[in-house]
Design a protein around this nucleic acid. Structure first.
Lengths: 193, 193, 193, 193
DNA sequence: GATGAATGAGCTTTCATTCAT
DNA sequence: TATGAATGAAAGCTCATTCAT
């Protein structure tokens, strides 16, 4: 539920009241209890949806960029991340706050999600890299993915700190790093072959 | 006040009760009101102290690393950032949450802090770079700083997501990026001279 | 709400607690907030009702005494005032305290009420006097009304100070003054005609 | 203590806080407890002083007006009452509120005061009337005093309701009534002698 | 499905009061 | 005399939740 995430992102778990959430939806607080047993369940449901959305969005971006040149694929992932979070600002804030959620069940669910997301990402990127560079080593694969992750995290956190041109610069720098990464990789491979 | 930040990082603004904060300090809730007019003032005071600490810590790390080789200085800044946040976990969580604080006064104070921090960083780094590379252009200075910022943000956000070896890898990658950055810069300069 | 006025008359605004008011009604304090936003609104509502009751009661007494001899009408007004306040003792005390209410909104509302009440009284009495004494001057009308008001105020304040026979004496004296007033008026008119 | 009465007249007993009273005097709340055991004692003391002041003031006015013509003496009493209450507005409001004081001890003290005041007034006026009209009956004395009391109460309560010219009119009407009273009395006596 | 009415629990805050200094 | 610091008690109020309708 969007209202739940919005209120959560604005005021935190304890500050997001059933009343305000209900108001935003245009119903009365008592009505929420027809759909959810209690506040915690409402939030768990909203958070799961948030994480699922995020996962699906990342997968969509990945599959849509298939066929492009490999460096472009990684860059598209960054761009997709940025666009998704720029459009759904509320969700992004909620996503960030989740890290410090006071609901234990949510914390463990987030951990699971991160593990799953990482697994998917590693597998997808591994396959992709092996297709493009058949003789690539596992060590090199890990190095590339970890570099991508660092840059993606840098961009992600920048969403909260910068706006407009300043933020755009950060994204461009991340893209530049990625491009360099693959240029080097291509050179190395050429030498080897 | 540490208790305030700890409770805030654990439960958010509305979840951090005066009772729990007082308990953690070993006084009664009513006693807090002898020193602070209300909850909001208590938190504003705690947050200001948090941000001031952070600023001072960064300045300390910077000045202590003076004299080292330039690439090492930037790397030391990353290391210092990491160490500071690994030691004061509670403060870090609080720092992250501040971005979405429901108190307007805090939001504006955070904005001011970020502006000041950026100014200080740009000036310090600019001077440093000019000392090391007298013929460096403003464009180059900005590019370097922005790259550093992206990497620092990537490391910072990673604090929340990874632990142990996985996190250590991220830091090493950031250091690697920085080292590369200055290697290139040195090569460019050598060619020019 | 009677309980609100009763508690107010007994303990004043700050001494009338939501708990006691709720107890008197047989509900829990929290329930009051379903109907009123806060304490102040509850009291404003109660006070408005009090003043409206008072106004209506005076109008009722006035219209019921129509048809009597003019002196009797004024005397009936005094009697009606006394009866009303003797029956609703709590309300009377509340009415008196209103003059010094610590709620600014109530003070202004009371001012408005007094102005309205005065207007109604002047118009009603003016019409009445003109009907009975067609050649009466405005000056004379005002003089009569003001004398009535002084006596009514004297009786009203006496409610708080005297009881039983002592109070009854005060009322009789007021009636006597009024009777005298109209005897004189009748004599003056007879001479003129 | 003026501050106590002022705060009481503004906010009532429960609304007059030790803090505000102390602030008005320029000391700290804790310091009040050096002079008074608790809030109730402070107020009892203040109220006693208020009533004593009132009594003394009335006696002073009475003795100062001795020697004047008898009607003038009664009129002076009304004027004195008005002046005293117009000057010490705070005290007047406090005086009115006392009638509904939530402190039982104060209520009984006020009763005593009223009895004493009435006794003094009756004795003084009785003596005065007997001096001026040696053959006056007790019934007549009582009638005159009660009429005076009704008018004085009317004027007193008007203090709270009217201002400026409107109030001045009420006082003049009271004076007029008194003058009439004694004119009649003088005529009756002349006829008898 | 939805809600008006009610409430227990708990929150922030105030207040009278205490006591060592 | 005066007060800084502390606190138990209670105030006004909010909130998640319930339940009959």
């Amino acid at each position: 539920m969007g209202a739940t995430l919005r209120q959560y992102s604005l005021h935190g778990y304890h500050g997001a009241t059933m009343k305000n959430i209900a108001n935003e939806v245009g119903i009365k607080p008592a009505s929420i209890y027809y759909f959810y047993d209690n506040k915690e369940e409402l939030f768990i449901s909203a958070f799961q949806q948030l994480l699922d959305n995020h996962q699906q969005e990342m997968e969509r971006i990945f599959s849509e960029s298939q066929g492009e040149e490999i460096a472009r694929i990684f860059i598209s992932m960054i761009r997709g991340l940025v666009n998704h979070h720029k459009i759904n600002t509320g969700e992004t804030v909620a996503y960030i706050s989740l890290v410090n959620s006071p609901i234990p069940e949510i914390k463990t669910y987030l951990q699971e999600h991160l593990v799953n997301f990482n697994n998917w990402m590693y597998q997808s990127f591994e396959e992709l890299l092996k297709d493009n560079y058949p003789s690539i080593t596992t060590t090199a694969i890990n190095a590339i993915i970890q570099q991508y992750v660092l840059l993606a995290n840098g961009v992600f956190w920048s969403i909260n700190l910068y706006e407009g041109e300043a933020f755009e610069q950060q994204v461009k720098i991340a893209e530049h790093f990625i491009q360099n990464l693959f240029n080097e990789l291509n050179n190395t491979c050429k030498v080897l072959s």
